[in-house]
Structures are given as C-alpha cells and as structure tokens.
Amino acid sequence: MITDFIGEVQIYGPGFMLAAWTVFWLTILTIVVSWVCGLLAALGHRSKVKAVRMLAAFYIWFVRGTPTLIQVFIIYFGLPQFGIRLSPFTAGVLSLGINSGAYVAEIIRGGLTAIPRGQTESSLALGFSPAETMRSIILPQVFRIILPSITNEAISTLKNTSLLSTITVVELTLYAQTLIAATFRPFEFYIAVAVIYLVLTTFLTQLAAWLERRYALQS
C-alpha cells in the first residue's frame, strides 16, 4: 500500500510539480496585472476627466457583471478574430488579471475613502505634487488597510487559475484530467490537485499574515 503510493508519487509527482509551478507563476503574474488594472481603475474613478471616470466605471461594471469563464474565452478565442493571437498562458494571465483587477479596484477605492482628507492636505501644503502625495503618503496607508481584502482576492485568483484548463494551459486541473483520462481514477487525482491548491493557498495566507505584521499601522 505504502510502497504503491510512493511508486505513484514517483511516476506522477514531477508532472504535478511542474503543473504547480505553472499555477504559481500564473498567480504571481495575474496578481501583478490585477494590481496595475485595479490601481488604474481606482484612480481613474476619481479622475477630473469625465471620460476617464466613465471608462473606469464601465470596466468595473462589465467585469463584475459577467462570468470569469466568458471573459477568459473572449480573450483567448475571441481576440484572434481581430488578429490578436495570444498563447494560452498569456491569454490566461491577461484575462484573469483584468478580471481580478475590477475587484482590486473596488478594494482600493474603499481604502482610499478611509484616508482622511487632512493626510493629502498636509502633503500638498508642504509642496508635494498630487501624484507624489498619492505615491508616498496615501497609497502606503491604503496598502496597509486593504491587505486583508487583497489577500482574499489573491487567493480567489489562485483558485481561478483552474479555469484556464479550458484554454489548454497545462496547470493542475488539466494535467489531472489527462491522467484521469488514461487511468480512470478521478478521485485520487482530484484529491491530489486539491491538496496542492491547499498548500499554495496556505502559503499565500501565511505570506499575507507576515506582511500584515510587518507593515501594521502603529496604534
């Protein structure tokens, strides 16, 4: 029994490690894209230019109101009609990043409203530009406030990478499915996938908890 298990791990383990590595990078890159999109949308939402505000609002409204899977399909299957052909990995990072960015935007928006107006004013009064004020005074405080919510969003992103099995990214789910097709043992392999996801999400949670302790606002 035990030797069977060890034998199986030796056979399938390296493949799972490779797939987990793919999930890891998918998640990291998706988080980067989502933070960029989220920050732009959150700041766009308070822009003086009405068109920018409307664009930001439309983005958030569209993404939150449509299924993630459809957004993935639009990017991967839809864009080639306009000559934009992306690799499954790139399309996956882009679509999940754009998707998560809308939620990150809402989180950042909430964080921004939590910072008293006086924080901005004291910085402007010293002669800082609005942009520098945002960068070195406001956003560092927002980051500390939103860290717990942003962690939740990162964990969602991590789990959402399983959707990318549908566009042939060889991540954990698709790898397991190919093994199941050959062995007809869905229970073991899906459990294996679940356990690997658990390890990854736990790691992410611990990392966030560490960041939270490190950057906690003193009070």
């Binding site: 008293p116 006086g118 004291s122 010293l126 002669g127």
Partner: peptide
Amino acid sequence: TATQLQALRKKVGMVFQSYNLWPH
C-alpha cells in the same frame, strides 16, 4: 500653474487643527 503653486507651498509652512502627521 501647478509648479508655481508648489513653489509657493514650499516657502509657506502650514499647521492644521488635526495635526495630520503621517501615521505610517
């Protein structure tokens, strides 16, 4: 202009009712 306003503010200190120190 924005730059002139900043130039003014660099030479004019201001202190507020609510201190507005940066907590981080």
